[in-house]
């Protein structure tokens, strides 16, 4: 529902003091101004942004799709003249065990990060919703991981996970896990992904927690009070009142987190670069590697399109949820 912009009726459109001798032309001017305000201006204002979006997003997406059906090395990519190969880039991906492993890794790692982020985010939101001294301070401190650039966070955590001098190993050993003495996190797959996952969750839980906190605080007190009076304990209030009311918000947060965690590049690149022996590659790393170190732009484009397809499905779900939630067409 858009508000219809009505011109003030019964008033002269422009400052026409005296009003003599301006009869016809004033009317024409009013009409042209009306036309300009309501027809031309809106389009003019949107045009630059639209142009940018089409040139920098629309064209590249279409071109990547086109490239994914071609065999394109570096000279062909920039000079033209590449061979159409149909779906062979896609079939290459489907039959290559390394590629299949990357897909599985991306999904498993992404979902693990989402679960970690949501669990921690919910817990932190519930904590911050309780009255205690220092809550405001904690609310600011929790923002810091989110505020930190991803590359910087990955750098610092890489140092924290250092096998000999890292704080993490020292902490684990001092609480009794002596097997972590000199433990190398980045030489094999699962520990490396654990370390990367910690960084990802560390950086993304604040967003979830603070969004949920805002949601929690918007729940009317009387609903909770009514439940309390009816004898519900804090757990029952959470279980039967708070969570159901927050369900739409929770869904949106899950979808956003999923999209973010499937796209991860920076943290992996800084912490392991996909190694050792390509074992910690996720989809975006593999795509980048096929393109810019292997110079197989066709295959890389096919990988990018596969990722795009996965994320599109998630995005459609997301947009549906947003629409239901708040109605986009304000």
């Amino acid at each position: 529902m858009t508000s219809t912009r009505t011109r003030p009726l019964g008033r002269p459109a422009g400052p026409t003091p005296g009003g003599r001798g301006t009869g016809g032309s004033g009317r024409g001017r009013r009409w042209s101004r009306h036309w300009f305000d309501n027809r031309a201006l809106p389009r003019l204002l949107v045009a630059p942004a639209l142009l940018l979006i089409f040139a920098l997003i629309g064209y590249p997406v279409a071109r990547t799709l086109w490239l994914s059906f071609h065999d394109a090395g570096l000279p062909a990519l920039t000079g033209g003249g590449m061979d159409f190969v149909g779906l062979s880039n896609y079939t290459d991906i489907a039959t290559d065990p390394q590629m299949r492993r990357v897909f599985v890794t991306t999904v498993v790692f992404g979902l693990a990060c989402v679960v970690g982020t949501m669990v921690l985010g919910i817990a932190v939101a519930l904590l911050l919703n309780r009255p205690f001294r220092g809550r405001a301070l904690l609310g600011v401190l929790v923002l810091l991981p989110w505020a930190m650039p991803k590359v910087a966070a990955a750098t610092v955590w890489r140092w924290l996970f250092h096998d000999q001098y890292g704080l993490v190993n020292w902490g684990l050993v001092s609480v009794g896990f002596s097997s972590f003495e000199g433990y190398a996190w980045f030489v094999s797959r699962v520990p490396a992904f654990t370390a990367i996952g910690v960084v990802v969750v560390w950086q993304s839980f604040p967003f979830v927690a603070l969004s949920l906190l805002a949601g929690l605080q918007s729940i009317a007190d009387d609903v909770v009070d009514a439940a309390r009076i009816d004898g519900a304990g804090p757990w029952q209030v959470t279980r039967h009142i708070t969570l159901p009311l927050l369900k739409p918000l929770l869904l949106v947060l899950v979808v956003i987190s999923t999209i973010w965690d499937f796209k991860i590049f920076d943290q992996v690149y800084v912490m392991t670069q996909g190694g050792p022996a390509r074992s910690t590659e996720v989809l975006s790393i593999t795509t980048w590697r096929e393109a810019f170190t292997q110079l197989d732009f066709g295959l890389a484009s096919a990988l990018a399109m596969a990722m795009f397809a996965i994320l599109s499905v998630i995005t459609v779900v997301y947009i549906r949820l947003v629409r239901e939630d708040q109605g986009l067409s304000r």
Partner: peptide, 19 residues
Amino acid sequence: VVLATQMFPMVVLIIPLFA
């Protein structure tokens, strides 16, 4: 469109932009 572009993986854009 505006909302969806936030969801795009950057690797989809990077190859054509590079060219």
